[in-house]
Design a protein around this nucleic acid. Structure first.
Lengths: 248, 248
DNA sequence: TTGCGGGATTTGTCAGACAAGCTGACAAAT
DNA sequence: ATTTGTCAGCTTGTCTGACAAATCCCGCAA
């Protein structure tokens, strides 16, 4: 008889992982830049000054600076120094950790996701191949079965949205959608929780999935976009409802 | 197993823009991960092994690993080693340097930009304030003046698109649009070059700007989205035409 | 004023060392 | 036989010192 205790969920075991002095220093410097303490083009303190100021070794300082460099906040020139980038943070697009966003920011990110999903649905309707449709139908069928048998269809839900991304035939669009979706895994899990089953939320989401699938199958870009827009809006509504529930 | 990565020789450095040994090493390791030579969850070679294989110091190796860490490709655990992230490269969204994209990739990025710009235009039409409209009209007037007097209106063009982003009242959307637009500064400059003036391309772009401005002023989201879509499509067309021109 | 050293400064790289934390194996205890 | 304690070896994190390469700044000369 194996242990009656199920294995720990790896995603729940890594909370306090603010590893390292260099990460802390990088965070403080980035905060200083964001706060406007250093203007674009300004020179940062030298490594020696930072070593003395924060009482860490030069290795730590260099690692922190390197992190800011890859984040696009600073640029360094050998012999000259480290300078705040002209367009800080525009070298790559990054969003704060899922748990660190307040409600307003989350709404904005959700809206960005909606824009991308709508565009993706329209393109998917125009470009879907036979193989794309097969994948979409398979994922939909798995969600349908999960809905009937009270199983958790979150994985099938993910597969469905991934299939839409594939059908749009644009790897950058798909990668960005996956990047954004990452921040809303809790939302999708919510759709398949018992509370949502009882209130009809799960069935409503599935109806939205069906509308999207039908529009993509017909090749109706406008309808697909509208269906995606409705799906995202409803998901936002369900998320807000669940979020406010503890208050009464 | 033979080394899948050829040794690094600083004297044969291929890309002078990747300043530094650590950047080169980081690029090679990232390429290996993308190529699937290391699967998600796999352990990377230890720092000592990398030091011996590439004949660089441990500082270089550590800086390269640190870069991959902030890029979301690897995670390190003290005492255990460095591991390929479960979802490599999904910690942030990044696009290759403007000069390194081939035509197909560029088209995909352009399409992504179109999706975002359309959504942004729709939201701007719904949310624009009086101040937003004033900024839009000011930028449009500057473009109009540049068009009449044969000046370069690229800066005003940037201001106009930035004003649309502001009017959408979503900082994440605006930041992402700016991030993408970065890769197409050449396209916007193209619109205001003498060749475009003579062929009427500049005037056509201005007409598209006017349609977008009118729709946003009226608060007509659908028309604003359509105008933005047309503007991006035309810009793509102008860009392709200019790109193929040297061939004949 | 302009051009040109040349020393001082700063980042990039190297080397060695110790501390902190993990892994696996072996011995001891139940 | 299973569990627990211990330990040795390995790996990453941090510290220290040094040198090379690139840049900056200031004084000097034409």
């Amino acid at each position: 008889m194996p242990s009656p205790i199920p294995p720990l969920d790896p995603t729940l075991t890594e909370l306090p992982r603010a590893t390292g002095l260099s990460a802390m220093l990088a965070g403080r410097l980035a905060a200083s830049i964001r706060a406007g303490e250093f203007q674009p083009g300004d020179r940062l303190p030298t490594e020696k000054q930072l070593v003395e100021r924060y009482a860490v070794s030069r290795a730590v300082v260099r690692e922190a600076i390197a992190r800011l460099k890859t984040d696009g906040f600073v640029e360094t020139r050998q012999g000259a120094g480290a300078f705040v980038a002209l367009k800080p943070g525009l070298a790559n697009f990054r969003i704060a950790e899922p748990g660190l966003l307040d409600a307003a920011d989350l709404a904005h990110v959700f809206e960005l996701r909606g824009v991308v999903e709508v565009g993706m649905a329209e393109l998917a309707a125009e470009r879907r191949s036979a193989a794309d449709l097969a994948a979409l139908n398979a994922a939909f069928a798995r969600m349908e079965q999960a809905l009937q048998s009270d199983e958790n269809g979150a994985a099938a839900d993910d597969s469905f949205h991934a299939a839409v991304a594939t059908a749009a035939h644009n790897p950058y669009l798909a990668q960005f959608a996956a990047f954004l979706a990452q921040h809303f895994s809790a939302t999708r899990a919510l759709t398949w929780q018992p509370a949502a089953r009882r209130s009809g939320g799960t069935a409503a989401a599935q109806a939205e999935h069906r509308a999207l699938l039908d529009a993509i199958t017909r090749g109706d870009a406008q309808a697909a976009g509208a269906a995606a827009r409705r799906h995202i809006a409803q998901a936002a509504g369900r998320y807000r409802a669940a979020d406010c529930k503890p208050k009464g």
